[in-house]
Simulated scan of single mutants.
Amino acid sequence: MSRIFFAQELEGVATFWRIHRRDGVTLGFTSHNRDLWFGGILHRAAPGMVPSAIRRTADLSPDSTDVTGALGHDSISAADLALGRFDNAQVQIGAVDWETLEFAALYNGSIRTVSAEGGSFSAELRSAKSELELDFIPRTSPTCRAQFCGKGCTLSLARFAHEAALGELDLAANTVRFEGIDAPLFAEGEIRWVDGPQAGVRMLVIEVKSGGLALDVPLDPGLAPGTRAILTEGCDHTLAVCSTRFGNAVNFQGEPFLPGNDLLARYPSPS
C-alpha cells in the first residue's frame, strides 16, 4: 500500500510476522494485544515475539535481523523447532495499522538457524538479497553436483517417488520399515510423512540396516503402523550409478576422470 507510517505523532501501529513453512502451513502473528485479520491471513496476538532492528540498505549486502520470543503460543512449540518444521521457512515482517488494517511489508527473507532454550527461542533471518552471495560458477568434483531429480539432473521426481505405509519402527535404532518397497533403492533418499504426528516433516535416509531405513531425525513415539509417507529413491551421485541404474550419464554434472591436485603435484620418479 501507499500508506506512510509514523507520519503523525500518534498512530495505532503494530508489528506483524508471517511465516510460510515448507510443509504448506502459514502462520501469522502480531504484536497487538488482539488477533488481526488482514491480507487473507489471521494474525494471532503474540506480544512476546520481538524483532530486532530491521536494517534495509540500497547496496547488495544482505539485510539480516533476528526474532526472539517466548514459546507461549500454541502455533510455535519446541518440538516443532527441533523437528525442523521452521527451517528455511519464508518470513515477512511489516507494520500494520490495527484500526484501519492498512499494512506494509518491511522485510522479506527466510529462517536460517533456530535455537530454543529455557522456554524461549531465537531465529536468525536472512533477507532475499542473501541469495546474491551464492557462487553460481560450478567447481569440479568427481561426483555429480546436481540435486537428484533437480535442475541439471533432468530426471522426473514423480518417477522415483513412492507412497508407502509404515510397517514397523524401531525407536532405539531410529529405523523404519515400509511395506512393499525395495529398501536398498532408498539409501541416501528422503522420507516425507503424509499423516501422523510428524506429518510434513522430511527425513533423510542415512543408512539401510537389514531392510530398515535409518533416519537423521528422531522418530516420534506416536508413529503407528499404517502411517503413510512419500519415499524418494536415493542417488550416491557417482557416474556408475547414474549410468547403470538411471541411464542418465549424459546429464552427469561431475568430472570423475579429472586428475586431482595430488596427481598434478607429484614429482616424476626415475624408472
Score class of each variant (00 low, 15 high):
134 L>S: 15
36 L>P: 01
218 P>S: 06
72 G>M: 15
184 P>I: 04
46 A>P: 04
186 F>E: 04
68 T>W: 07
177 R>Y: 02
187 A>P: 04
22 R>N: 15
90 Q>D: 15
71 L>W: 03
201 V>L: 10
145 R>L: 10
28 G>P: 02
161 A>L: 09
143 T>W: 01
268 P>I: 06
249 A>E: 11
151 K>F: 10
131 E>A: 15
182 D>G: 06
204 L>I: 11
249 A>I: 08
62 P>Y: 03
119 G>Q: 01
158 A>G: 11
176 V>T: 04
121 F>I: 08
258 L>A: 10
270 P>N: 11
127 S>H: 01
52 S>W: 09
235 C>W: 04
25 V>L: 05
59 D>C: 03
84 G>I: 06
150 G>V: 06
116 A>Y: 06
139 R>Q: 13
4 I>A: 12
65 T>P: 01
33 N>V: 12
109 G>C: 07
170 D>P: 08
213 L>M: 04
94 G>R: 06
74 D>T: 14
117 E>D: 11
48 G>Q: 14
49 M>R: 07
133 E>V: 13
17 W>C: 01
268 P>T: 08
224 A>M: 15
218 P>W: 00
118 G>E: 08
159 R>G: 00
191 I>D: 01
209 K>L: 15
220 D>R: 00
163 E>D: 13
186 F>N: 06
130 S>V: 13
190 E>M: 09
261 N>I: 14
55 R>T: 15
174 N>H: 09
86 F>N: 07
10 L>P: 00
147 Q>F: 00
133 E>C: 12
83 L>M: 07
90 Q>W: 13
235 C>V: 04
127 S>R: 09
195 D>Y: 01
152 G>R: 02
85 R>H: 05
184 P>V: 03
57 T>N: 13
69 G>F: 00
181 I>T: 03
